[in-house]
Design a binder for these strands. Sequence first.
DNA 1: TATTGTTATACTCTATAACTATA
DNA 2: TATAGTTATAGAGTATAACAATA
Lengths: 178, 178
Amino acid sequence: MSSPTPALDPVELAAYFSLIEATSLLRHTVELQLKEAGDLSYVQFQLLARLGDAPGGSHNMTELADGVVYSRSGLTYQAGLLEKAGLVTRAPSADDERGTTVTITDAGRSRLAAVFPGHIEVLHRMLFDALSRDDILTLEGLLTPVVQHMRAMPPRSASRRRTKGSTAGGLAGGGHRD
Amino acid sequence: MSSPTPALDPVELAAYFSLIEATSLLRHTVELQLKEAGDLSYVQFQLLARLGDAPGGSHNMTELADGVVYSRSGLTYQAGLLEKAGLVTRAPSADDERGTTVTITDAGRSRLAAVFPGHIEVLHRMLFDALSRDDILTLEGLLTPVVQHMRAMPPRSASRRRTKGSTAGGLAGGGHRD
DNA sequence: TATTGTTATACTCTATAACTATA
DNA sequence: TATAGTTATAGAGTATAACAATA
């Protein structure tokens, strides 16, 4: 429908590679720091940080998952770990009995506090020290719309699963159950 | 010793979040595409692509690992998978008998060819369609120095392990072996 | 019937430590 | 002794499918 996508020109290629490598290096370093300073994986840190920012320190599972985790069971698993560590609590939601409300505990906030300084230090050392003030502003100005664009994209997968109605007309003609 | 790293200002925070989320979404989508089009994980794709670009289609293990994988055994594992799938061959290096030369096969190149169009399409759809020509140039201009900066950083871990000599003066007073 | 969340399970990936072999 | 790579193994994480319960 749109572009023929023949290849990437050198600038696109370099931008793509840099983006991937920078994030990979940054994330790896951050993961080591989080693990060492607070025994948290990156995903766990993201979940905790999200709860820390939320009003009341709470989210339901679906809100919490958004953007961090790509499957429900994955979140249940992580939330279970955080709960077992005493960093969050889980309780049935007040308004929707199906829902689970996850709330950060004092211990969770302490853990965040224990981890933040080192986290920020890594970000400065690895990322921001290499950029001028204007560069950072420019980068933010470029990437924020990119994220919005990506969020608006159809998921391409990851959600068309419980689509009951596809009994006929699917790709697989034969006999997969479910 | 150096910066007090009090906190991130809003722009830094936004830049950081955008960077992480954009890359996460992009990578997730790319991984689905690579899996579907060529049954490759992202790491496997990177290794294969790197070999495809190399003169003679070869690298030794250490060169191949650089920047893609963070442990030796991880690369051995992945290389083993690629070899089992017939996409690369492994042979003792000519010049250094300790080394292993990994070479992409014709099947490996075919696999790359099978995967590239969709890969590029995803990149355009998710990333480049949201940016102007100048934006892409700017992004590349910002991130390339960032990567160089990151590469130049001391690894902070991940290599200070076989440092025999630290019998005295280390952090752990006691008796960890090795 | 659709949605929220959990569980069971299988699989992929990563990393540490111990080991072999060559430089 | 240091370096290149492999192996064994253990652990963390992810995803699919099946399930229970509420809307």
